[in-house]
Design a protein around this nucleic acid. Sequence first.
DNA 1: CGAAACGTTGATCGTCATCAATGACGGTGG
DNA 2: CCACCGTCATTGATGACGATCAACGTTTCG
Lengths: 215, 215
Amino acid sequence: MSQPINMIRTNQELLQLIEQLPGMQQHTVKPGQKLFRQDEKARHLYVIKQGIVKCYITEENTKDYILEFFGEGEVMGELELLTGSPILSTVEAVTELVVYKADSAHFLQLLETNATLNKLILKELATRVSQLAIRVSYQQLYPIEYTLLKLLSLFSYQELPLSKKDLADYLAITVRSLNRTLKQLREKNFIPGDGLDIHLSKTELDKLLKRFDDE
Amino acid sequence: MSQPINMIRTNQELLQLIEQLPGMQQHTVKPGQKLFRQDEKARHLYVIKQGIVKCYITEENTKDYILEFFGEGEVMGELELLTGSPILSTVEAVTELVVYKADSAHFLQLLETNATLNKLILKELATRVSQLAIRVSYQQLYPIEYTLLKLLSLFSYQELPLSKKDLADYLAITVRSLNRTLKQLREKNFIPGDGLDIHLSKTELDKLLKRFDDE
DNA sequence: CGAAACGTTGATCGTCATCAATGACGGTGG
DNA sequence: CCACCGTCATTGATGACGATCAACGTTTCG
């Protein structure tokens, strides 16, 4: 049994802690602007106060793979700070964004002196490994139709500010393929003709899941 | 440009540190035995002194996805300890194994008191997120043939104690499909008729990579 | 007793059929 | 103009089934 995955991850505990720290600068960022660019060197660290970003890896064949959607309280830039590697993924604002910005050195120091922060970061990293692992195992071992269904079951699409392109990149498929798969789900009456919200109860979903498993 | 990925990950720094700690019990484990079972509760923490393990998630359709191969100095069980979740992946000895075993509470305490250990664990987790992300982006956005070629280029297969089943599970395909893909590579003279070691220089490999990208 | 013959088992491959997913291209409707 | 879809063709990857082959132990016969 896998634990529930939220498509847009948040970390309220971390946000609260950050807001209490002195000397954190705030910045606003417009949708489409980039906080980090893949392969460059990270110089700062950001924590989201408000809004949503997407983190994606661009392969040399120009295809994008969205690693994560981050919301309130999520931190960015800490991976590179800890490993010393170039930036793993481009980070781009999806909505209007308010972020706290910290100096790398400052953050490193905080990690050593602030035990609460330290613990929260450890937990955050552990969570990321787990969630990513659960997700990719899914994506690799089930057909797209199933993965999409599972994904839709996690949220009410109407409230999501994500474009179909984003959804498609998250699934590592094209928008065309996403639409095709949505149509298949519609034909099977798993989702309604208009919206994208799922038509199934938890138990029905589980039943479907079993069906996939048996084949 | 992605940094090099080693198929079997190690962490010598961590191993050295662990070996200096007092009161670490040593255990030996036979190939095939399991250190952790998915979905159970983690009670201990292990660090590999010698040998190789595989960590894999088993989906409800009984397919396995190998997350990692761990060698010397890699730690297991810390994710669950930090997040409080059930065990993410089954961990099974591939070769004869010697591990250090630590109590969860003991480790948590060490994390708070031993700054060096703390930093190494932070770095380790950050590395895992990065490596996993790089790998899955690859697997999702390129065809199997290419992913396999890339994988073979990372090591000299003869020395690897991995079975074809393991290799296949790592790629999320069946052994049959793995053999088929190997055959294709052989027909194109990328690997020799007998072994599995790659026939290409770094530059040739890069050229191939470009070819895939252009299509 | 030893060597040839036999059967068992597991790994691999050829082949055919099928499914999953994509690409291309043009049409439709806001 | 852009988002979406119908259609056709193609590629990617898998499943099924049977044939082959090597490894290994066991039987059988000289």
